[in-house]
């Protein structure tokens, strides 16, 4: 019950947070100079045509009225309309979210599976070549620009070696998408038994996931390393050694469990970085996700999609962090007690 009320309380706190962010976003869009109608019309336009388009796009209304309309829609789940795509932002985000989710999900899972073992092993073998290698990877991973890494991987694996598919989205051009069940092509291909789409979607995910994983796993590895080093120098570990418990058992049964506490929170916080990274990776690999949707919209002053993107990302971020806190509570009885 304690955890449940904690979750409900946190969920309720999301409402004012979302409201505050929606106000800030709306104010920013007003402050950013630029008239989207002008862009939509192109060079060959007339003043009359411009006026007409202002009315059609609702730009003739005062700002407070536009915000009120936006807020009314928001309460009903309507994130507005994108003038660039001519469609409801909610529809656009729904169509594009699976591409982002697929990329983000696999990258997160792989980052955890790679980052934590590297952190543990390097911490356990201090001052060995493994330790130096792990540290070097940590520095490289944190320092390397994501965009650049993506381009290099494309250059090497696609252009030079020819073993990766062309970075042209989620599938080969001549492969039809699987029937939409979840929107995740890998899952949908498996469920529908479409092997061609399965192979194509997996092969198109390899480089983007590698790009994100390389960077995110490095941060997780560094965090795990620091946490493990702290735990391994604790007195109870020394006592354990003195009792003759094997190093392997000490590390994986006793030290790791305690070292993982801050790592769980860190992974939750990494979601923010991951979403930022997803935007860049989607541009490099031509993936039609919500990140690229937001960037493309921002460049042409189409602000409803940007507002929608920020709100969706915020909800995801808050939910993941809530989940991390709950997990933290489940793993650590002390924290659980404070929740209760």
């Amino acid at each position: 019950m304690g955890i449940m009320s904690f979750v409900i309380k946190r969920l309720l706190w999301m409402v004012p947070t979302l409201f505050g962010v929606s106000v800030i976003m709306f104010c920013l869009t007003i402050l950013i100079p630029g008239d989207p109608a002008l862009l939509r019309l192109g060079n060959f336009a007339t003043a009359e045509q411009l006026q007409q388009l202002h009315i059609e796009m609702g730009l003739d209304k005062p700002s407070h009225e536009r915000y009120w309309l936006y807020l009314k829609g928001l309460v009903q789940g309507d994130l507005g309309r994108s003038w660039r795509t001519g469609d409801a932002v909610t529809n656009n985000l729904k169509a594009r979210f699976p591409a982002t989710l697929e990329l983000g999900l696999y990258s997160t899972i792989l980052s955890i599976l790679i980052g934590i073992p590297i952190g543990v092993v390097t911490a356990a073998r201090k001052d060995s070549y493994l330790d130096y290698g792990g540290k070097l990877y940590g520095v490289l991973g944190v320092a390397m620009p994501l965009f650049w890494l993506g381009l290099i991987l494309v250059y090497v694996f696609y252009y030079l070696l020819g073993i990766a598919p062309a970075p042209t989205g989620r599938l080969d051009m001549l492969v039809a998408p699987p029937p939409r069940l979840t929107g995740l092509y890998v899952v949908d291909s498996v469920l529908s038994g479409d092997m061609e789409a399965l192979w194509s979607s997996i092969s198109h995910l390899v480089l983007p996931v590698m790009t994100l994983t390389f960077i995110v796993a490095a941060s997780i590895a560094r965090m795990t390393y620091t946490s493990m080093r702290r735990v391994l120098s604790a007195q109870y570990i020394l006592v354990g050694h003195a009792y003759g418990i094997s190093p392997h058992r000490m590390i994986y049964k006793y030290a790791l469990k305690n070292a993982l506490m801050p790592v769980i929170t860190f992974v939750g916080l990494q979601i923010g970085f991951l979403i930022g990274g997803v935007v860049l990776v989607e541009v490099v690999f031509a993936l039609p996700g919500i990140g690229r949707y937001a960037v493309d919209s921002l460049l042409v002053n189409d602000f409803a999609p940007v507002q929608g993107f920020v709100l969706v990302v915020l909800v995801v971020y808050l939910c993941v962090n809530l989940l991390a806190d709950v997990l933290y509570g489940l793993v650590n009885p002390q924290v659980r007690a404070t929740m209760e």
């Binding site: 381009l151 494309v154 250059y155 696609y158 252009y159 020819g162 062309a166 970075p167 042209t168 989205g169 051009m173 001549l174 541009v283 490099v284 031509a286 039609p288 690229r292 493309d296």
Partner: peptide, 21 residues
């Protein structure tokens, strides 16, 4: 006719070079 969106100009160049478009 397949019109494939490839936002990055350098990527458009290399996929043309490799014959993928």
């Amino acid at each position: 006719i397949i019109l494939q969106v490839v936002p990055d100009a350098s990527t458009r160049r290399i996929i043309l070079e490799r014959g993928d478009v």
